[in-house]
Amino acid sequence: MNDTREAPLRIEDAVNEVCPWSGKPIAADSLTLYNGAVVGFCNPGCRDKFETALRQFEGALQARRAARAGNDE
């Protein structure tokens, strides 16, 4: 039987040592993946704020691309 669970993120794999929002040290319970890299935050709230911002940016980029594609027709 194949185990399809992803390996847990590890603080030692993080590309940063301090939270990009607060400047405080990162915590093991506040990691996420971004473009294939582990990024750390000081707490889950900062991590969640980052993930929300990414979704908003991605939505805006997709809307822009769709609008440009519509103008090219």
Results as ranks from 00 to 15, higher is better:
residue 12 E to F: 01
residue 21 W to F: 08
residue 18 V to D: 03
residue 61 L to A: 06
residue 26 I to Q: 00
residue 11 I to L: 13
residue 25 P to E: 13
residue 2 N to R: 12
residue 50 F to L: 06
residue 65 R to C: 06
residue 6 E to D: 12
residue 17 E to V: 02
residue 56 Q to W: 13
residue 70 G to A: 15
residue 35 N to M: 10
residue 8 P to Y: 08
residue 69 A to E: 15
residue 54 L to P: 00
residue 10 R to P: 04
residue 67 A to Y: 07
residue 33 L to E: 13
residue 48 D to Q: 08
residue 39 V to R: 05
residue 33 L to K: 14
residue 56 Q to N: 08
residue 38 V to L: 04
residue 53 A to D: 10
residue 27 A to D: 14
residue 39 V to M: 05
residue 35 N to G: 01
residue 67 A to T: 05
residue 57 F to N: 05
residue 11 I to W: 02
residue 63 A to W: 06
residue 43 N to I: 07
residue 26 I to V: 08
residue 65 R to T: 13
residue 59 G to D: 15
residue 72 D to W: 14
residue 43 N to E: 10
residue 12 E to R: 07
residue 13 D to R: 03
residue 19 C to G: 05
residue 22 S to V: 04
residue 5 R to D: 05
residue 39 V to F: 01
residue 3 D to V: 10
residue 61 L to W: 13
residue 46 C to K: 03
residue 57 F to D: 04
residue 52 T to G: 02
residue 8 P to L: 05
residue 52 T to F: 11
residue 2 N to I: 14
residue 72 D to Y: 13
residue 72 D to A: 15
residue 71 N to K: 15
residue 2 N to G: 04
residue 38 V to N: 01
residue 49 K to F: 08
residue 24 K to M: 09
residue 31 L to F: 02
residue 9 L to G: 01
residue 61 L to H: 09
residue 22 S to W: 07
residue 21 W to D: 12
residue 32 T to S: 04
residue 43 N to D: 12
residue 37 A to P: 00
residue 55 R to G: 07
residue 42 C to R: 03
residue 28 A to G: 00
residue 52 T to I: 11
residue 38 V to F: 00
residue 66 A to I: 08
residue 11 I to H: 01
residue 7 A to K: 13
residue 49 K to Q: 09
residue 38 V to G: 00
